[in-house]
Structures are given as structure tokens and as C-alpha cells.
Amino acid sequence: MALEEQKSTAFIVRLLKNPALHGFTPLQKEEHILQFLSQNSSQLYPTLSSSNFFPNKNWDQIWSLLTKTLFTEINKEMLPALKSIIEEKLDFTFVSFLRQQNYPFTKLKEELYNFISALLEKPELRRAYTGPLTALWVDFTEKYIDQVFVRREYIHFELTKVQRLKMSREEIKNMIDASILLRPAVFILSAIESAGAVESVSGLVQPHFVDKVFKVLKKKLPFLPDELLRSSLNSNVSFIENRFLEATARLTAIFTGRCRTFNPHTKTDRGADTPDKSWFSIARRNYRFYGYDIKILDELYKISAENDW
């Protein structure tokens, strides 16, 4: 058994070191390797089932062994990064503005980390975390919210006047980041419990399902304010169906959607528009499909165009 694990680890490490995966975040790499294994199973199986690798095992057993090893290897890189994001990067002082009681930040961060790392044990939740963790990994919120506060247009109005976030720019950024971090928690319920409430293609959920998850989440994360939990969960609801979604929820949805395929090392071909500008432009045309707020997309599109992002 130990020998099989060694072989499996050697194989997965070999794939992870492939230069083609350079620049991707751990969960993006994981997604690429899973896709690679799945699409090339017919070619890989004869070799991987030979005496050199895993003899007398069928493909399902090999797949199980390899994915287990893959998750272990990815976790080695991802969990310290997640810890660092929660403990060092995210500042939870905005929580004090939302609820008038103090909760020790150290304990809050520790419990949040434990909660998310538990979520990441579920393969389907790992996939849902690809976009959010990439957004936090590359500091996506930072540059756009800075520009939003310079322009003081629609998004700024929605954040400060409609959602009434009476807090500083930095605190708003931290709230959006925290909202991004908790967005996949909407899938905390089992597949049976969520049947019919999750749209399989766009990943959008029904508003009544959010209410159901909110109650569960509230029990698991009592130290976090309702506004943040609602923002995270509502980011999975279509803005077309609910025009009263929080601005932070709408931004969370867009930022995670953008970062699902984000690669900071993407080379822009001559004659092509920049990656962010292209993504926002396409998203503007598909806004109904993904349930995005078109006005937010318009402003983010302008920001990306002006900054060559």
C-alpha cells in the first residue's frame, strides 16, 4: 500500500511540475490534472495498471488513488496559503461595524479556517473554491475597488448609499474578500437536500435555498455577522431574479466568475483585447445567463479598458 502511494505521489508530483501549469493557483492546477486524467483515461489505464504502477486495479481504483494523492499534494500548497489569507491578508475589523459586539479576531480567524478547510475536503466544494481562492490569491478585489472609489459612480453608490456600508474603503474590500471566501458555503448541504435548487449550468441557486442554507451556516459560524453571510450566499443568486441583492454579493459573483479562469501569466496576443476587458465584455452579453448586474459589469469593463487590465 505504501509503495502504491509512493508511486501515485511520484506520478502526481510529476504532473504538478509540468511547466504548462506555471502561473495557475493550486486549485486551478488540480482542476487541470483532474481533467487530464479524465480525458486521457483510455491511454493512461494500460500503463497505470501495469506491474510498474498499480497492477490488478481497475480504473476506478486507480482514479481514487490518484485523486486522493492529488488532493493531498494540492493541500500542502493550498492550506498554508489559505491560512495566510485568513490570518494575515484579511482584516476582519469591518465585522465591528456590522454588529455591535466584539468577538476575538484570532478565534474568529481560527474557526473560519477550520470551517473552510473542512469544506475543502469535499471534492465538489473544491471545484467551487477555484474561483474564490484565485480571486483572493491574486488580490483581484484590491485593484478594482480602488478604482471604484476613484470614479465614485454606480458601484460606489450601490455600496455606500444603497447597501449603506458606512466603513472605509479598506474595510469594504475586506468585506468583499470575506464574502468571496464564504461564497462556496452555499453548497454545504448535501446533494439530496439541494436537489432542484441549484441550476446545473450557471451554478445559480434559488433564493429560498439561500434562506435554508443561511440557517445552517448561521449555526456553524455564529461569530460572523448576518450581512456577511447573506452577501456570500446571495452571490449565488441571480440578480435578475432578485433586484435587492447586496452590492457586495453582486461583486462577489462577478469577481469569482472572472477568477475561475484567471491566469496572471496570460499573454495578450497582438490584436487582442486584454484578458479582463475581454472577460467583462463577454460577461456583459451573458449577464442574464449568469445573473450578473449589467451596470456593475459596465463599470468594471470601463475600468479594465482604461487600465489595460
Binding site: L15, I33, Q35, Y290
Partner: peptide, 29 residues
């Protein structure tokens, strides 16, 4: 305005993208 948005939706339905890893990368095994 037409092709890329359609492609994006189609990709969301099918899932996955281009394979960055190629079988040739590990052909020595």
C-alpha cells in the same frame, strides 16, 4: 459580440477548457 458569448455559455454547459497538460509530456512513462 456573438461567437464568444455563445462559446462561453457552451463551455459553462460542457465544463472544462483546453488541456494544458498533454499526454506527450509524460510519454517517457
Amino acid at each position: 459580440e456573438v461567437f464568444l458569448p455563445l462559446k462561453d455559455r457552451s463551455r459553462a454547459e460542457e465544463g472544462g477548457g483546453d488541456l494544458e497538460l498533454k499526454i506527450e509530456d509524460i510519454k517517457d512513462i
